[in-house]
Amino acid sequence: MTPTNWPCPLPDGGMSQEYALTFDRQRRHRLLILPALFDEGNRLRRFTVEVMRRLDAAGIDAFLPDLPGCNESLQPLGKQTIPGWLAATIEAGRHFSATHALGVRGGCLFTPVELPALHYVPVKAASILRQMLRARVLSSREAGREETRETLAEQARTSGINLAGYEFGADFYSHFEPLVPDSGATVIEQGKLGGSGLWLRAEPDEDATQSDTLAAILTAEITA
């Protein structure tokens, strides 16, 4: 496993060096992985990397780039845009010469259209936001402030919002909210992995059987 950087286009026309974890042995099958987003990204990162280790053992190169504003990125999330993220994932695919793309949960919203895509339990952007808004309502209530999801969503669309520590700009929020995963992708449902989704866990967790199974499904699809 090699940590590296990749040149990522930014919405303002500039460029940033973003981080990526890679298993690159110049093999025929090269998988670009778009990680789960925000809080789910933290909870699924170890699982994602465990799947990459198994893909490496099965002869498949894999690349896990940071989107600007996420994970190790030095870019502010509040300044990112949806077209910017779409351009970034296309560039990541080209930079790593990917032959396939895998979206994990919210990452499915950003798999480049030019690559054959596999979607691991894809989720609508609205569902991700619904949960983050609800967490905000609950924590505000604990602090003695009454908020509702409707008014928070309205505020988010007009002036941006901080949800669970993630700063969303108004433009990003408005364009993110209606996103749904592309229906052309091959969908891998959780039922095939023999256990419940690790994004449900309150604390990050791992499950070797699920990693084995997902890697085996991906290998079969990619090398078919």
Binding site: S127, R130, Q131, R134, A135, L138, S139, E142, L200, A202
Partner: peptide, 10 residues
């Protein structure tokens, strides 16, 4: 925590 409860309710 609140995020976990939000997940549970969803």
């Amino acid at each position: 925590d609140s995020m976990a409860v939000a997940g549970l309710l969803t």
